[in-house]
Design a protein around this nucleic acid. Sequence first.
DNA 1: CTGAAAGCGCTTACAG
DNA 2: CTGAAAGCGCTTACAG
Lengths: 351, 351
Amino acid sequence: MTEVQSGTPRRRRGEHRPTVADVAHKAGVSAMTVSRVVNGDTHVREATRIRVLAAVAELGYVPNQAARSLAGGKQFRIALLHSNPSAAYLSEFMVGALREASASGAQLLVEHCAENPDPAAIAVQLADHRIDACLLPPPLCDDARLIAAMLEQGMPIAQVATGQPHPQASSVAIDDEAAAHAMTARLIAKGHRRIGFISGNPNQTASALRRAGFARALAEAGIAADPRLIANGDFTYRSGLAAARKLLGCKPRPTAIFASNDDMAAASVAVAHQQGLDVPRDISICGFDDTAMATTIWPELTTIRQPITEMARIAVKALVKRSKPGAPAPRPMQLKFTLVGRESDGAVPPK
Amino acid sequence: MTEVQSGTPRRRRGEHRPTVADVAHKAGVSAMTVSRVVNGDTHVREATRIRVLAAVAELGYVPNQAARSLAGGKQFRIALLHSNPSAAYLSEFMVGALREASASGAQLLVEHCAENPDPAAIAVQLADHRIDACLLPPPLCDDARLIAAMLEQGMPIAQVATGQPHPQASSVAIDDEAAAHAMTARLIAKGHRRIGFISGNPNQTASALRRAGFARALAEAGIAADPRLIANGDFTYRSGLAAARKLLGCKPRPTAIFASNDDMAAASVAVAHQQGLDVPRDISICGFDDTAMATTIWPELTTIRQPITEMARIAVKALVKRSKPGAPAPRPMQLKFTLVGRESDGAVPPK
DNA sequence: CTGAAAGCGCTTACAG
DNA sequence: CTGAAAGCGCTTACAG
């Protein structure tokens, strides 16, 4: 047995793990009181709380989740419904969702579904799996038919990263408009005037918001909008390739491209390279999302980072909270984004 | 309430869910017998089993996992330890791990750790979180020091995708050597003789296996190994960029490049494009892993697919099984890979 | 602010 | 092959 340093007592696996009873005994209180302290109940005398906490630490007590949810009669099952698995996004999302689920004793089920799911089929699937609430990352967060059907059935849902929160759903998002505005303003501050924009999938509500932020920054800087500098994409790399080709074909050429996500920005970098352009010396290129793609390619992309893990965590928390009596009505929540400046953008090139 | 079609009875959330007692009553047996049937115990008369199963179906009974693990006294906690989060890999991995964990009533904890973790620190972390077993995806699956330390402590572990299974660990992998051999043979069959190879991170045991498979295929075809056609990479896109430049600088130029993973293959495509080469007309490029990168870029990559989700599922299953009395000794398991032919490779170009 | 009792839904010995 | 009883570790009313 390797000797390790820690304040927590070591014990071989298989040995008896401390229970509330052990803690109660050591602290000289009842099991109930231990439970109260552990669950953050406020109606406990401070001295008692301290004694219990000390016993918990000394014994290395960790609550048994199974007993907890059995006694609580909860056994809350949350489905993470996803289609179109942007694997990188999903992975960050799952880490956050799982963390909160395990902290609050809920069970997380990951269910894949069609890109354009049949609401009735989903309803069956959820009922068969005894799902109590649903987590909807993009693009499902924007599927109005699906959401209406679930809500009508009384299924609590949380939309993550939608631009259009449903009043009866919990939702967590960033301010996509403000983020796009910030990125565009950064480019303008670096001297760019001819900035190409690649829009995202029109079916996702965030797409319009990003475009609106771009347009507002331009307007605020007194730069006339040039429709030829807007290219339609759909968030795929392939659509980014076509859009970038269109943009780079304009005369005079734009000095910067702001793509609505990283995949399309990466495609723009590829097209620029094919045309013998150096990034960022000859042209600046920025993305959105800060997915793995942003740091995989070279140069690494300046982009907008959403706190995906945290957003998922909060969404799960909201769902769990709503399952308890006296829960407040669902409401939209907004988290801060970060503009991550890396190597793909720079000053406007001299004439 | 939307009307849905299904054999399972619908009920509003919050309503009483059927328990073993309900099933037992309906089937005219004891709760014990229901438990036996549900858990696949063989010592049950066939007629009884059928009756119980019918009751289960009719009531839409689903066992309560919390009660199950509480009664079973298990409450098995498995840590998925990961560093260097190749997000795409991790996401597929988590889906599989989570699926099996929830099916077998184990709890899955996702713990991030340093790229080159201090075994003692990890031991503390695991003990603090009351971890019963550990899941090690790459590159941690190849960290000999970490593995030795955990094993010494008596921690059951499962290595996924290692080229060098530890005799005391469970392990699940594909045959990396055979996969690389298959890919190389495919290229040879298409007429290629000058095939460049980009190796992976030398710290991962799979790297050497992939290279060995490449070499064997060459030897079997009677093609002399040319050391100038081997470039060292480390699995990053950036290293792929440098390796591809080196390879494409050879005279005569290789007609194909086989990179040890998709990121490096994607980098090779980028370099080829920069040099005005068409893929696959002028040069064939293949990857390994079938990550999101493979289908994101254009042309889509011909690559090797590992059943990552299934590998993770099996690894969890092995760990859970080993936690039960009378479990067999851990052993290495091997799953089938698939060669996925897409658009990045073709016939050797005419002279 | 604190506690004694009951019970959550299952499985594990122990019988027969 | 089948069942009655006890108990897993917690929390929830209900008291005081």
